[in-house]
């Protein structure tokens, strides 16, 4: 019985290591700022609107429902997807802000970030190429 449970745990942890990919936060290659994890969270929650060097931040999200976005919100923002949704509904319906715009895929994020100096996005770590710079990993 014990063995079976152990077996189940091993299988689950194997499965979850497959599902739970590493998330890389990427910025434009010309972006020389360094960010603390709390800065990444504040940028994606609309609280930090400029990088340490003073240039404006342009965060971009993956589409809601995407696994990588769920991972990012859980690990970087410390919130579940519905908590993030509730947070943004507070901002939107109080006229205080709107959520980052959404792009459909890792490739779209990389294209947008590589073309936009102030952009900051996140992708599955395996999608990263030399067109963008990784500034944090979760």
């Amino acid at each position: 019985m014990k063995l079976i449970i152990k077996g189940v745990i091993v299988v689950i942890s194997l499965m979850s290591s497959v599902v739970l990919a590493e998330v890389a936060v990427v910025v434009n290659t010309t972006n020389a700022n360094s960010l603390a994890n709390s800065d990444v969270s504040r940028i994606f929650l609309g609280k930090m609107k400029s990088f340490p060097d003073g240039s404006s931040t342009i965060p971009v999200n993956l589409e809601s429902g995407s696994t990588v976005r769920g991972e990012f919100e859980e690990k970087a923002l410390g919130k579940s997807s519905s908590q993030v949704k509730a947070y943004w509904s507070k901002q939107v319906f109080s006229g205080k802000g709107k959520p980052p715009k959404e792009l459909a895929s890792d490739a779209d994020i990389i294209r947008f970030v590589s073309a936009t100096p102030g952009a900051i996005g996140y992708v599955d770590a395996t999608s990263v190429n030399d067109k963008v710079k990784v500034i944090a990993k979760y």
């Binding site: 400029s50 509730a86 509904s89 319906f93």
Partner: peptide, 28 residues
């Protein structure tokens, strides 16, 4: 600026913690 916004017109009176989105039950 990024940090200062002015609102003119009919708007929510910010009395309470949840005033800004008092009708949006999803938010609390």
């Amino acid at each position: 600026t990024d940090d200062t916004r002015v609102l003119v017109g009919r708007q929510r009176a910010p009395f309470y913690m949840y005033s800004d989105y008092i009708d949006v039950s999803y938010a609390y």
